[in-house]
């Protein structure tokens, strides 16, 4: 019962993200865009490259969708509305999201094409940059909550949300989440101008529809994870809890989609240099500061 509700909400969220993304990139707000483009994709011919690595080519989009949905199973939208309340929920989100990398590698290597391959391996370079920047802020959040349960993490933000308690961690997690979902300006794998579509280039028809669906689900899962970890989940003054969750997730999604219009695409070397030389020391400083705050404030 909870599973169907959450999956329906996920589908609704994916629809919203698609409408928002089309609105932000083209300026026109049309509610029918996702449905029409989805039907068009399903109706198109599925072109298969000449000598693909068959297993990888087929499995990659499905794995992308699966990993995003698995990560969404431990996110609480309301007290009691969670698919599985795993005792190691905060770590499980990260474990499920790593399979996005495996899916992108398969999608890059599978079609036996140059642009796709470059896009796939570039995503590995991006992962080396953002992987620590996701785990370390989560560690700081878990330190405050003293538990890995996602519901406990939300409850621990009762007086003061984590965005005010650990602002440095929030900034780093936000940037790393954008890099994980390969949103602009971190969209190296599917660089639209540079790599002719990169990883998405060789997919068409049903597989492209599943790939894009997986990507949209990933965006909304990451937005929900940000809300749970840093923005206090369902907490808020006078609206019901589910309304607060929805509003916050929507706000974070819009911010993630809009932030890409501010900067040009960051190159591989720059991303690695900034994340390892500046990001990781800041993340460690964040853990240190949160440790002091947790011990000092009763």
């Amino acid at each position: 019962m909870t599973t169907t509700i959450i999956l329906l909400l996920l589908v609704f969220g994916v629809y919203l993200v698609a409408v928002l993304e089309a609105w932000i990139s083209s300026g026109r707000f049309r509610l029918t865009t996702p449905i029409l483009s989805g039907i068009a994709l399903l109706g198109r011919e599925s072109i298969v490259p000449r000598k693909p690595d068959r297993i990888f080519f087929e499995v990659a989009p499905v794995l992308l969708l699966l990993s995003a949905v698995l990560a969404a199973t431990v996110i609480p939208l309301m007290p009691g509305l969670i698919i599985t309340d795993l005792a190691t929920g905060a770590l499980f989100i990260n474990a499920a999201l790593v399979y996005v990398l495996v899916a992108m590698l398969m999608a890059g290597w599978g079609p036996d094409g140059a642009y796709a391959m470059v896009g796939g391996w570039r995503f590995l370079g991006q992962l080396i940059a953002y992987a620590m920047l996701i785990v370390m802020p989560i560690t700081a959040v878990v330190m405050r909550a003293e538990s890995l349960l996602t519901t406990q993490i939300v409850v621990s933000q009762d007086g003061l949300w984590n965005i005010f308690y650990q602002p440095l961690g929030f900034v780093l997690f936000f940037i790393a989440a954008m890099a994980l979902a390969f949103l602009p300006p971190f969209d190296l794998p599917t660089a639209t101008g540079e790599l002719a579509g990169g990883v998405e280039a060789e997919y068409s028809g049903v597989r492209l529809a599943v790939f894009r669906l997986g990507r949209l689900t990933l965006i909304i899962t990451l937005a929900s994870a940000t809300v749970v970890f840093y923005l206090g989940g369902w907490q808020g003054p006078w609206l019901p809890p589910w309304a607060w969750s929805g509003i916050k997730i929507l706000a974070v999604t819009v911010t993630m989609l809009l932030a890409g219009r501010l900067m040009p695409r960051i190159s591989e070397t720059d991303l690695l240099a900034w994340c390892w030389k500046l990001g990781i020391p800041l993340a460690l400083l964040n853990i240190f500061l949160v440790g002091i705050l947790v011990l000092v404030i009763p």
Binding site: T88, L91, A95
Partner: peptide, 30 residues
């Protein structure tokens, strides 16, 4: 549970890095 989740998370990253090293060093990656 903790060990299972940790194993799944770490090994995905490590084996992907092993994949790129194979492509770098081996004669016939395809």
């Amino acid at each position: 549970e903790f060990l299972g989740v940790l194993q799944i998370m770490m090994m995905a990253t490590e084996m992907s890095i092993m994949a790129i090293f194979m492509v770098m060093f081996m004669m016939d990656p395809g």
